[in-house]
Design a binder for these strands. Sequence first.
DNA 1: GGGGCGCCTTCACGTCGCGGTAACGGACTG
DNA 2: CAGTCCGTTACCGCGACGTGAAGGCGCCCC
Lengths: 122, 122
Amino acid sequence: MEAARAHEEIEVIRLGGLEIRPSESLALAAGRPLILSVREFGVLCALARRADRIVSREELYRAVWNAPLRAGDRSVDVYVRKLRVKLERVMPDGRFIHTHVGFGYRFSPERSHVFHTSATPR
Amino acid sequence: MEAARAHEEIEVIRLGGLEIRPSESLALAAGRPLILSVREFGVLCALARRADRIVSREELYRAVWNAPLRAGDRSVDVYVRKLRVKLERVMPDGRFIHTHVGFGYRFSPERSHVFHTSATPR
DNA sequence: GGGGCGCCTTCACGTCGCGGTAACGGACTG
DNA sequence: CAGTCCGTTACCGCGACGTGAAGGCGCCCC
């Protein structure tokens, strides 16, 4: 594979302590590798690439499964669940995948505790 | 759907500290996402697109529900109320939705005092 | 072959929030 | 006073979602 050559443009997504390298099928959480299955990694990438956006299940399914979402298919929900479990296992304080009822999911890393940013309204 | 093409013209409404992206079903207040239901978001979009205009309930209902308003239907009032609550919760000093008795509602952000927006890109 | 192990998918069940309606009360008008 | 308009809250059915588990398939190893 082409994973060896580093001088090319390699997509690296860094968000809230996560580091995702789609081309290498690698995800690091706080420096340590996340053990993910193919589908789990696909969903994580699709969400992370659309960070801070609300992504519908249709778009998510099409991006990962490369097929239209069939009515009644709850695969997306299940893999979001699996991702949440594995993410929380490594980073218990971080909220990553947010549900927007009726719309879809939104990937936005948020730390529940530390808030050292200046000028935090409310 | 225009959501798929990344670099095209995406409708973004910016008004008084609010940022609304209809195509992404996303509304940001002072940089952080507003948690809205489908109907609430629909009403917000319809109002924001008609900012500074007095919009009748008939027009509002038709725009969001895509059906004519039936006599006695007070759904619009209820969702305006829900929107007001959620908007005030995030931006206590801003008045957004104004009532015009006998005519309808008008969306015009008004701040009672200056708000320091802390743009915090992660 | 046969057993074990992941992974993907589907199913079932419980919970919760949304959406829509009704109802009450206040403000205002004539 | 009756009548209108609107703000606000309460209520309920139902769909959306979270969650655990089972079935099915492919793969590896003994």
